[in-house]
Simulated scan of single mutants.
Amino acid sequence: MTEPTAIDLPVQGGTLRVLRFGSGSRTAVAAHGISASGMAFRAVARQLPAEWSLYALDLRGRGGSSGTPGPYGIDWHAADLCRAAEELGDGGPVALTGHSMGAYIALRAAARRPELFDRLLLVDGGLPLPAPEGVDPDAILDLTLGPAIARLSRTYESDQAYVDFFRAHPALGPDWSPDIEAYVRYDLTGPQGARRSKAREDAVRQDGRDLLGSADAFAADLGRLAVPTLLLHSPLGLLGQEPAMLPAPLVEHWVGEVPGLHAEFVEGSNHYTILMGSHAKTVAERLVGVSFP
Results as ranks from 00 to 15, higher is better:
Met1Pro: 13
Thr2Trp: 14
Glu3Asp: 06
Pro4Gln: 11
Pro4Asp: 03
Ala6Val: 13
Ala6Trp: 13
Leu9His: 03
Leu9Ile: 09
Pro10Ser: 06
Gly13Asp: 07
Gly14Lys: 02
Gly14Thr: 09
Gly24Tyr: 00
Ser25Phe: 14
Ala31Phe: 10
His32Gln: 00
Gly33Leu: 05
Gly38Ala: 04
Met39Ser: 12
Met39Trp: 10
Ala40Thr: 15
Leu48Gln: 12
Ala56Phe: 03
Arg60Lys: 06
Arg62His: 14
Gly63Pro: 01
Gly64Arg: 13
Ser65Tyr: 03
Ser66His: 15
Pro69Phe: 06
Gly70Asp: 01
Pro71Ile: 06
Ile74Glu: 04
Ile74Met: 14
Ala84His: 05
Ala84Glu: 13
Ala85Leu: 04
Glu86Pro: 04
Gly91Tyr: 12
Pro93Glu: 11
Ser100Tyr: 11
Ala103Ser: 13
Ile105Gly: 12
Ala111Leu: 08
Ala111Pro: 02
Ala111Phe: 07
Arg113Asn: 07
Leu116Asp: 08
Asp118Ala: 09
Arg119Cys: 14
Leu120Asn: 04
Val123Lys: 15
Gly126Pro: 14
Leu129Met: 12
Pro130Trp: 01
Pro132Tyr: 00
Pro132Trp: 00
Pro132Ser: 00
Gly134Tyr: 11
Val135Ile: 07
Asp142Gln: 10
Thr144Cys: 11
Leu145Thr: 02
Leu145Tyr: 02
Pro147Glu: 02
Pro147Val: 05
Ala148Cys: 13
Ile149Met: 14
Ile149Ala: 13
Ser153Pro: 15
Ser153Arg: 09
Tyr156Met: 04
Gln160Arg: 04
Tyr162Gln: 06
Tyr162Ile: 10
Tyr162Ser: 08
Phe166Met: 06
Ala168Ile: 09
Pro170Gln: 12
Ala171Phe: 10
Leu172Trp: 04
Gly173Pro: 05
Asp175Gly: 14
Ser177Trp: 09
Ile180Glu: 08
Ile180Pro: 13
Ile180Phe: 10
Val184Ala: 13
Asp187Asn: 15
Asp187Ser: 07
Thr189Cys: 14
Gly190Lys: 01
Gly193Gln: 05
Arg196Asn: 08
Arg200Asp: 06
Arg205Gln: 01
Arg205His: 03
Asp207Cys: 12
Gly208Met: 10
Gly208Phe: 11
Leu211Ser: 01
Gly213Asn: 03
Asp216Met: 11
Asp216Trp: 10
Ala217Met: 11
Phe218Trp: 07
Gly223Leu: 11
Arg224Ile: 04
Leu225Tyr: 14
Ala226Pro: 03
Pro228Cys: 08
Pro228Trp: 08
Leu232Pro: 00
His233Met: 06
Ser234Gln: 04
Leu236Gln: 12
Pro249Met: 15
Leu250Cys: 09
Trp254Asn: 03
Glu257Met: 15
Val258Phe: 15
Pro259Gln: 00
Pro259Ala: 14
Gly260Trp: 15
Gly260Gln: 12
Leu261Arg: 03
Asn270His: 05
His271Ile: 15
His271Pro: 06
Thr273Glu: 00
Gly277Phe: 12
His279Lys: 00
Val288Leu: 08
Val288Gln: 10
Val288Arg: 13
Ser291Lys: 11
Phe292His: 15
Pro293Thr: 15
